[in-house]
Design a protein around this nucleic acid. Structure first.
Lengths: 139, 139
DNA sequence: TATCCAAAGTGGAATCAGTCCAGTTTAGTT
DNA sequence: AACTAAACTGGACTGATTCCACTTTGGATA
């Protein structure tokens, strides 16, 4: 994924191309599921100086426009996911907090339809699998 | 649900019985899915004066012991659910934040199997259905 | 039924993640 | 080249929650 890809993607959703946005988008795509703080660090490494606020603004703009997705698992700051448009789910390690993508469990009823709708109009079923990752299980 | 039920339940999980704990447990059971702040308010109404910290401590102790369950939907403070032991799921209104229980379509936890396990040992599948509740849809 | 002490509660300061705001800079028109 | 809405800065602030040092108390034990 090159800078020109990121640039084209920003233009594709009618967002102005700035070095901060390119850097944030690149950071998220390079390292999916990282939180705002580590994105700030990575972007600063690349650009030298960026305000925290700018990074939050960019993350919100990218999320809003659908270029990235924001995931907020219980007990950890928001994380940003570069994989979008497929409503995939996540597997989270209770020990180290590591998060990996899992494809949508299509076919398994609860993923799509709740047992009862309670009059709600539902647009998303978010599934988080909790467990322990291989490396945390060993130690 | 009377005070003696709450008291018996506290003793059942080897927790000391205090007026703060009884009040917090009663508040959660009376009004499931409320957040720490409104529980603090309710408990103060009953007891007159309780520290915020005490309420947080009690909520953690009750969660730890399995008497209540902590749910943390994206973008809202933690909520406490009196219904435990059945790994049911939640339906959350994007507009007003209202949360209702939905039965788990499958029997025991983890109710769904992920498409790929990635070496994790999984113990829970947490499902959150996002949508708009009937009263928010009308207005 | 008095003593004791780990567990529970207090109050105040601190942290963490994130937002608000008012002013400045800049991308990309016109 | 000038213009302007969008983007960025930096600093103050908020809301939710935790930390800490100290005091109080439930309930086990003598």
């Amino acid at each position: 994924m090159t800078t020109s890809t990121h640039e084209a993607d920003l233009r594709g959703v009618a967002l102005r191309v700035t070095k901060q946005r390119l850097a944030v988008l690149a950071a998220v795509r390079r390292n999916s599921h990282s939180d705002a703080d580590s994105i700030v660090k990575e972007v600063r490494q690349e650009l030298g100086q960026v305000s925290t606020q700018a990074v939050y603004d960019v993350l919100h703009a990218l999320t809003e426009s659908g270029l990235i997705r924001c995931v907020e698992p219980a007990g950890s700051p928001a994380r940003y996911d570069a994989r979008v448009g497929d409503n995939h789910h996540h597997l989270v390690c209770r020990t180290c907090g590591d998060m990996v993508d899992v494809d949508c469990a299509v076919g398994a009823a609860p993923c799509i339809e709740p047992a009862a709708r309670h009059g709600f109009s539902i647009d998303e079923a978010e599934v988080t699998y909790w467990g322990v990752c291989p490396s945390c299980r060993i130690t």
